[in-house]
Simulated assay, not measured.
Amino acid sequence: MIHCENLVKIYKVADLEVVALQGLDLHVEDGELMAIIGNSGSGKSTLLNMLGGLDRPSAGHLVVDGKNLLKFTERDIVRYKRETVGFVWQNNARNLIPYLTAQENVELPMLLSGKRRKQRALELLEAVGLGHRVRNKLSELSGGEQQRVAIAIALANRPRLLLADEPTGSVDSRMADQILDLFRDLNRNMGLTVVIVTHDPQLAKKVDRVVAIRDGKTSSEFIRSKSYAEELAELEAGVAQSPDAHIEYAVLDKAGRLQIPGDYLKEIGVDGTNKVRVTIEDGKIVLLPPEK
């Protein structure tokens, strides 16, 4: 579904240049549910904007659903945003119109498509658990319910890719769990590819793969040792859970470079230096602090 290779994004303001992405690589399979995590300024929101057709890379290779976004005309971008991708923002004001009902908000993206709007809107609101709130305006809905309406809007035109930017950032932990469960249901029942961007590492408990971005590059991946469905089945059967449900992998670029988490370097005494000793011992690559 998503193929990013050596993606670079440079923002220019007057004489100032800010490099947001520095040769990022990312591959997402069709029908996958995954999360992208990283600190503020790591480049995760920049990546999401490019996947959504809201921004363009400065260099590199970006293909989504077989479409090369670097070769898109403005007309192609409009069609892509209308037909291929759905977007859920953290700020509900970017998704919702306050003086419309939940149903009217969901119908709005379908106006230009000429499709049967009312039935589709009702089906989507039912799918996100709001079949009983279709005639309510936003002021009558909780923050979590508004976010569910936003998800229904993102699905209105049957996208193949759903992007969510901090979708649980403005709700409490209980509602965040419900929203993440909803993404999993949509992924499983509709075959949607779902990419969630967040700064919350707890999301790893709900998805099968987590990609960590650091300094504009893919630095590591966390992959489940067993599926979420298998873990739920074991919980129901009373099987004790392992504290480490995911295995962390460092990501190598084509030149063999990798980013090592700072905590690991501090653990071996490499702090405040840009050099380490690299040796091979018993078939393993070993990093050591520089000799004093």
Rank of each mutant, 00 (worst) to 15 (best):
I2P: 02
I2A: 01
H3R: 13
H3G: 00
H3E: 12
C4G: 09
E5K: 15
E5Q: 14
E5T: 06
N6K: 12
I10Q: 12
V13I: 08
D15I: 00
L16R: 15
V19E: 13
A20K: 05
Q22S: 11
G23S: 05
D30H: 10
E32M: 06
L33M: 15
M34I: 13
M34N: 08
A35S: 15
I37E: 15
N39P: 13
N39T: 15
G41N: 06
G41T: 01
S42Y: 07
G43V: 04
T46M: 03
N49D: 14
M50D: 10
L51A: 12
D55L: 13
S58N: 11
A59C: 05
H61L: 04
L62S: 11
L62A: 12
V63Y: 03
V63W: 05
V64F: 08
N68K: 10
L69T: 06
L70T: 10
F72C: 02
R79S: 14
Y80H: 09
K81I: 05
K81N: 12
T84H: 10
F87H: 11
F87S: 13
V88F: 00
W89V: 01
Q90H: 04
N91A: 08
N95T: 05
N95L: 07
I97N: 06
A102F: 08
E107G: 06
L108W: 04
M110P: 06
K115S: 13
A127H: 09
A127I: 10
G129P: 03
H132T: 10
H132K: 10
R135V: 04
S139G: 13
G143Y: 02
G143I: 05
Q146I: 03
A150D: 02
A150R: 02
I151C: 03
A152P: 05
I153E: 04
A154D: 07
L162Q: 07
L163M: 08
P167N: 06
T168F: 02
S170K: 13
A176V: 08
A176I: 07
D181K: 14
L182Q: 07
F183A: 00
L186T: 00
L186P: 01
T193L: 03
V195G: 00
V195Q: 05
H199S: 04
L203F: 12
L203E: 06
L203D: 04
A204G: 15
K205L: 10
V210M: 08
V211A: 10
K217A: 08
T218M: 09
S220P: 05
F222N: 14
S227T: 15
Y228E: 09
A229S: 10
E230Y: 04
L235Y: 12
L235M: 15
L235G: 12
Q241V: 09
S242A: 11
P243F: 03
D244N: 14
H246Y: 14
E248M: 15
L252I: 00
K254M: 01
Q259C: 05
Y264D: 11
L265E: 00
L265I: 06
E267G: 04
G269N: 09
G269F: 07
V270M: 08
V270T: 03
D271R: 08
D271M: 08
R277V: 07
T279R: 13
I280N: 13
G283D: 02
L288Y: 05
P289K: 14
P289Q: 07
E291K: 14
E291C: 04
